[in-house]
Design a protein around this nucleic acid. Structure first.
Lengths: 135, 135
DNA sequence: GTCAATAGTTTCTTTTTGGATAGTACCTTA
DNA sequence: TAAGGTACTATCCAAAAAGAAACTATTGAC
């Protein structure tokens, strides 16, 4: 397994050697829901149903599943309050907070991309899956 | 559809308003193969079979499919040489090159993450899907 | 006794994705 | 004449992911 993560080993990665840590990141935050969940938690702690209401279209099963995976990966913290009705709070861990620059970079590029595509309407018209984004 | 991408609208995104451009990015570079293809093309132009040989385990169908999607999204350029045997070269477009900071951020975080997890071996042991990364 | 609220779990079905395999087209080399 | 290289395309099938809907547990309020 990979070790020796020298500070700016991106050059090595670019040269084709070194395993691809980018995939690791994609593994952790990839998929349809995780970045949206992370976005919700960037500012503050949220409860299960708060998240459920914010993320339009997600099922309880999916939400639970994605939250569990993020928890397993050490990105979020799950705080259970033993009371009735139940109360569970989700928040970012310190590790989770380190994702902010990544999300920012992705957000920035996304905007750049949409802008670039908007300048070329004939291409933007038949772009594939942008429909899933919606405002 | 979203317009008015004010320069650092990440704060707005963090506040929960504004559509999520992060998803757009994930839409374009997400999935199992795209970042690996992009990594291959970061340095130089590559031919179909070069890519096929570099990306262990990918089928021709998948490679073709992913390349077409990246092309549709304006990330890569496909240059066909009318000669026999056929020759097709793939390279990053200018837009594609702007992905570099994103890939770097993701690469950097991936390393950070792996390091953090390695410091906690009991967690690293049962991490879910890191197996797909391999060197 | 039953309703509501919260945070899930379970089951079943559908959709998406991925892979194996074979075929196409063209020319060159043996 | 047959094989080989290149860059695909087409078809079928299996597996994985996602979604819909119903069910569970708990307890205080009515």
């Amino acid at each position: 397994m990979m070790k020796t993560p020298s500070p700016d080993s991106i050059e090595l990665a670019a040269s084709g050697r070194l395993t691809c840590a980018v995939e690791t990141t994609l593994d952790v935050i990839g998929g349809r829901w995780k970045v949206l969940i992370l976005k919700e938690l960037l500012d503050d702690v949220k409860r299960f149903n708060q998240l459920h209401r914010s993320l339009h279209g997600i099922t309880q099963k999916m939400l639970t599943q994605q939250l569990r995976e993020l928890e397993e990966d050490g990105i979020i913290h799950r705080e259970v309050y033993l009371q009735v009705p139940p109360k569970v709070e989700y928040s970012l861990t310190d590790l989770g907070k380190t994702l902010k620059p990544v999300l920012e970079a992705m957000h920035h590029w996304g905007i750049q991309y949409l802008t670039a595509r908007d300048l070329a309407p004939e291409d933007a018209a038949n772009s594939r899956t942008i429909g899933t984004i919606e405002g």
